[in-house]
């Protein structure tokens, strides 16, 4: 696949991470997550999806605070958060690079992460730009911590990190991200070279290569990492059709790109 993965591929990958949720919330300025949630809902029509800013998918009637109240009560099972910097402990920085008081780079701010990262059980951290600039050893400012010490009310937290190159799962026992799948055409070396934190990998149960019988030395192969599944034809049809249509009022430019990206993958 091309260097920049298409929106349709990432939306499909993210929809898989949402599967099984009863309630999925999507924040503002989140076109790929919105497409992902609508795709997940196609597979599971009972899933409740709320998309901030969407006239059709925003059922809240108690103003801007209601989503946060809904989440704080434990009713929201899945939410997608983006961040400017993410570290291997899953701390998120949405604020600044460099000294907070005199930043080199200033970004908009923490949005709802200061609560949602703590109370939503399945947070998907999403950063399309997979680079050592984005995935760092230690974030410069912690908008929200990846984990909390015992005794701190913490029903929620990170479950997944999806980037333009790979998927990591969050291992709560060790409080670290673990590489779990590579997008098609991406190597483990490429991910390591573009990731500022150290990480372990989930290795797929090694299937003995057929050649091993003939050449036992070839058993000493690098451990294999799963490949992120690509969308099926039916899913591309949904993304390019009804899902792009549903998102066209909220994200008109994105809907055009989504139709094109899904078309390319088909």
């Amino acid at each position: 696949m091309a260097e920049a993965l298409s929106s349709a591929f990432l939306a499909h990958a993210m929809s898989g991470l949402m599967a099984g949720s009863n309630t999925v919330g999507i924040g503002a300025n989140s076109p790929i997550p919105a497409a992902a949630a609508l795709l997940a809902q196609r597979h599971d029509p009972g899933m409740r999806v709320t998309i901030l800013g969407s006239p059709r998918h925003n059922p809240y009637t108690n103003g801007g605070a209601e989503l946060f109240d809904f989440a704080a009560e434990g009713r929201l099972e899945t939410f997608v958060l983006g961040a400017l910097q993410i570290d291997g402990d899953a701390n998120l920085n949405l604020v600044s690079v460099g000294d907070y008081q005199a930043p080199k780079v200033r970004y908009p701010g923490s949005f709802g992460s200061g609560l949602l990262y703590y109370v939503v059980p399945r947070v998907i951290v999403f950063r399309e730009d997979h680079s050592a600039r984005a995935l760092v050893e230690r974030v410069d400012f912690i908008s929200a911590t990846g984990s909390s010490p015992p005794g701190v009310h913490r029903p929620g937290g990170p479950a997944w990190l999806l980037t333009g190159k790979a998927i990591f799962r969050f291992d709560r026992s060790r409080a670290r991200f673990v590489l779990t799948s590579l997008h098609p055409g991406v190597s483990e070396e490429e991910v390591r070279a573009n990731t500022g934190f150290v990480f372990e990998c989930d290795v797929v149960d090694a299937v003995e290569p057929a050649s091993a019988v003939l050449a036992p030395s070839s058993r000493v192969e690098a451990p294999r990492i799963a490949v992120t599944p690509s969308p099926a034809r039916r899913e591309l049809d949904w993304l390019a059709g009804p899902i792009a249509d549903e998102l066209s009022d909220l994200y008109p430019a994105f809907a055009v790109r989504l139709r094109a990206a899904a078309g390319d993958l088909r």
Binding site: A65, V95, G114, L115, Y118, I142, S143, A144, T145, H153
Partner: peptide, 22 residues
Amino acid sequence: LVAGEKGVPFMAMRGLIGSDLL
């Protein structure tokens, strides 16, 4: 703002613990 409209000095909220934001 909810604390403000109720005329009470503060409102409690979850999250935030351990962050640089706090």
